[in-house]
């Protein structure tokens, strides 16, 4: 703030900062919220999950619920997340 701004009590223009921040966070949220129309998870996701379980189950004893597959969109990149919970002791 310049001395003149202080003298005349002018405030900083922050509306453009607000707009930018909103555009960034909403682009992200629209892509991830389950309640949002923009997040139509692809139909092959459950099948991928099932086949992955089958493959891993050949080697390690896991249940269907132990493997989670999630597809996220972030700006212009897509992130495929696969999360496997292994049993306490891995037996052959």
């Amino acid at each position: 703030m310049s001395l003149l701004d202080v003298l005349f009590g002018r405030k900083k223009a922050t509306a453009n900062v607000a707009k930018e921040r909103l555009q960034i966070i909403l682009a992200h949220e629209r892509a991830t919220h389950d309640t949002n129309v923009f997040n139509d998870s692809p139909s092959w996701l459950p099948l991928l999950q099932q086949e992955l379980v089958e493959v891993i189950a050949k080697y390690i004893k896991i249940d269907k619920e132990d493997l989670k597959v999630n597809l996220e969109k972030r700006d212009n990149l897509e992130l495929l997340e696969i999360n496997v919970t292994l049993p306490d002791s891995i037996e052959q």
């Binding site: 607000a18 921040r21 909103l22 909403l26 629209r30 919220h33 309640t35 949002n36 129309v37 923009f38």
Partner: peptide, 23 residues
């Protein structure tokens, strides 16, 4: 015209478009 209100409105618009009877 305030950030938290605009963000929450966007969330509600998502619900209107996906969870309402019409949707």
């Amino acid at each position: 015209p305030e950030v938290s209100s605009v963000r929450d409105s966007d969330r509600i618009l998502g619900l209107l478009a996906s969870k309402s009877k019409r949707a």
